[in-house]
Lab assay of single mutants.
Amino acid sequence: VIAMPSVRKYAREKGVDIRLVQGTGKNGRVLKEDIDAFLAGGA
């Protein structure tokens, strides 16, 4: 999974398994917005 360390930390704090999140950034990078969208109700 491609993600910046700050995004990985954010996901950990929110209790999200970053491997389950679909990245929308360049080359499938997971963004902070992707974590929020995942929490809001889905992949």
Rank of each mutant, 00 (worst) to 15 (best):
L20Y: 11
D36N: 07
V16D: 00
A43N: 14
D36E: 07
D17W: 04
G23L: 02
A3K: 04
R8I: 15
A3W: 03
V16G: 00
Q22N: 12
K9M: 09
R29N: 08
V16T: 03
S6H: 12
E33R: 15
V30D: 00
K26D: 10
S6P: 07
R8P: 03
L31P: 00
R12T: 14
I2N: 12
V7C: 04
T24W: 03
L20G: 07
L39N: 05
I35P: 00
D34L: 00
G25R: 02
A3I: 09
L20V: 10
A43L: 14
A11S: 06
G42A: 14
L31Q: 08
D17R: 04
G41F: 13
G23N: 03
V30R: 03
A3C: 08
R12D: 13
D17V: 04
Q22R: 15
A43V: 13
T24E: 03
R29H: 10
G28L: 05
G41P: 09
S6Y: 11
I35M: 01
G23K: 03
V30A: 03
D36A: 04
M4F: 15
I2Y: 05
E13H: 09
R29I: 09
G28A: 06
R29E: 15
R8Q: 14
V21Q: 01
K9T: 08
M4P: 11
G25D: 03
E33A: 14
V7T: 06
G25K: 03
A3T: 08
G28Y: 06
E33Q: 13
F38P: 01
I2G: 07
G23R: 03
G28F: 06
N27P: 02
A37V: 10
V16C: 06
E13Q: 13
K26W: 10
V16Y: 01
V30F: 01
G25T: 03
K26I: 11
T24I: 02
D34E: 00
A43T: 14
K9S: 09
G25W: 02
K26G: 08
G41W: 11
K32A: 07
R19K: 11
F38K: 04
A37T: 12
K14I: 06
F38Q: 05
P5D: 14
A40F: 11
M4G: 15
N27G: 14
A37P: 01
G28W: 04
M4Y: 15
N27V: 05
L20H: 11
Y10I: 03
D36S: 04
A3Q: 06
L39Y: 06
V7N: 03
R12K: 15
A11M: 01
G41I: 13
A40T: 11
R29V: 08
K32C: 04
R12Q: 15
M4H: 15
A37M: 12
G25E: 02
Y10M: 03
V1L: 10
V1M: 09
G15T: 04
K26E: 12
V1Y: 05
S6Q: 10
K32I: 12
V30T: 05
R19P: 03
S6K: 10
A11I: 02
K14R: 13
R19W: 10
P5I: 13
E33D: 10
L31Y: 07
V30Y: 02
K14L: 11
V7Q: 03
E33I: 13
A43G: 14
A3E: 05
G42E: 14
R8N: 06
G23A: 08
E13G: 08
A43D: 13
G23Q: 03
K26P: 14
G42R: 07
I18D: 01
V7A: 05
L39G: 04
G28R: 07
E13S: 13
K14N: 11
G15Y: 06
R19C: 05
T24K: 06
G15H: 08
G28V: 02
G25S: 04
D17L: 06
V21H: 01
D17F: 04
V16A: 04
I35N: 00
V7S: 03
N27D: 13
M4L: 15
I18H: 03
E13W: 09
V30P: 03
L20T: 07
D34K: 00
L20K: 13
K9L: 11
K14D: 01
G42M: 15
L20F: 11
I18A: 03
K14V: 10
V1K: 08
K26H: 12
T24P: 01
N27I: 05
R8S: 07
A11C: 07
Y10E: 02
G42I: 14
V7Y: 02
V7I: 08
D17E: 07
G15L: 07
I35E: 00
V16M: 03
A37L: 11
P5N: 13
A40V: 12
R19T: 12
K9N: 11
K32H: 09
E13L: 14
Q22F: 11
G15N: 11
D36F: 04
L31R: 10
G28I: 02
Q22Y: 11
K14G: 03
T24Y: 03
G41V: 13
V7K: 01
G42S: 13
G15C: 08
R29S: 12
V30I: 13
R29M: 13
G23M: 02
K26R: 12
R29P: 02
A3R: 04
D36I: 06
Q22W: 09
E13M: 14
I35V: 11
G25V: 03
G41N: 15
G42D: 12
A3M: 05
V21L: 07
K9A: 12
R12M: 15
N27K: 11
D36G: 03
I2C: 05
S6I: 08
V30G: 00
E13R: 12
D34F: 00
K26N: 10
E33K: 15
V21T: 03
V1G: 08
A37F: 11
K14Y: 07
A43P: 14
G41Y: 12
M4R: 15
N27L: 09
I2E: 09
V1P: 10
K26S: 10
G23E: 02
T24A: 03
K9H: 10
L39C: 04
E13N: 10
K9C: 07
A11P: 01
I18R: 01
